[in-house]
């Protein structure tokens, strides 16, 4: 183990009304690694991911217990600044939905919100973020055109650049490539691998090959429980649990 984990979670339970969607998850995430969360639909992996930046808060009748810490700080503590949390923990969604503004305005949105007005700083952030998201060459001449005019894969990378611009420590991705074609997907995968030296990346994916190619650790969820957390290489070659082996060999899910 290289460094102390950046996010720790202990005995996390989540209830939608009476239904227990997460049944006690213990899971840690290391910096500069990509962790893939896999499992069949309804296994709780997305629900768990969304706990990490408190995106579940607005859902009615939800109850969360347990302990989730970022830098050893309880993110569900009553004095937690949720805006600050979401700056530290950025999120990319399945549907590539840029805001209805220009590419430039999309990327600097979070910075402008933080009160940064200096044009030079914003220009620099746009270039750095779009480069890091591997979409700079395609967009550098059309920065002031609407982001909605881009293709799905480009949109998703602009959405990622938008998150990178606010310099989070952790990036959550909820099936970032499932709405994209294979070429766009592989570009994003490659980009994530390039990004991990600066970020902690946690990614939900339905694509097992993607998890195997891109991630360092794989966490397998089933029925609201964490079945196995393992180094990705080991997970896909010599899984520790019977359920894991059944899942990756396509016997269910």
């Amino acid at each position: 183990m290289a460094a102390a984990p950046i996010i720790t979670s202990r005995d996390v339970h989540l209830y939608y009304g009476k239904h227990e969607a997460l049944k006690g998850i213990d899971l840690d995430f290391n910096p500069q690694q990509i962790t893939a969360l896999i499992g069949p639909s309804g296994s709780g992996k997305s629900t768990y991911l969304r706990l990490l930046n408190r995106m579940n808060d607005l859902i009615p009748n939800i109850k969360i217990t347990g302990d989730i810490r970022l830098y050893q700080q309880d993110i569900y503590a009553s004095d937690m600044d949720i805006v600050q949390l979401r700056k530290e923990v950025g999120m990319v969604f399945q549907q590539p939905h840029p805001f209805p503004f220009s590419i430039y305005d999309n990327v600097v949105y979070g910075l402008r919100l933080a009160g940064i007005k200096d044009r030079a700083v914003l220009d620099q952030a746009v270039e750095t973020s779009l480069k890091a998201a591997a979409v700079w060459t395609e967009t550098k001449d059309i920065l002031h055109e609407s982001a909605l005019a881009l293709s799905g894969g480009q949109r998703q990378r602009v959405c990622i650049a938008r998150v990178l611009a606010v310099k989070p420590a952790v990036i959550l991705l909820d099936e970032p490539t499932s709405a994209l074609d294979p070429i766009s997907s592989s570009k994003i995968e490659q980009m994530l691998v390039d990004l991990k030296k600066d970020y902690t990346i946690i990614m939900v994916t339905h694509n097992l090959q993607q998890a195997a190619r891109a991630s360092d650790k794989t966490a397998f969820f089933l029925d609201g429980q964490l079945v196995e957390l393992n180094d990705t290489v080991n997970f896909f070659t010599a899984p520790a649990k019977k359920e894991s082996e059944d899942y990756i060999s396509g016997r269910f899910g």
Binding site: Q84, R86, M91, F93
Partner: peptide
Amino acid sequence: SHAQREAGLALGLSRWETVLKI
């Protein structure tokens, strides 16, 4: 799309800012 609301919130916007600006 509901995704736009989530995207706004995930960037650290408040609910009102998300509604008003996005």
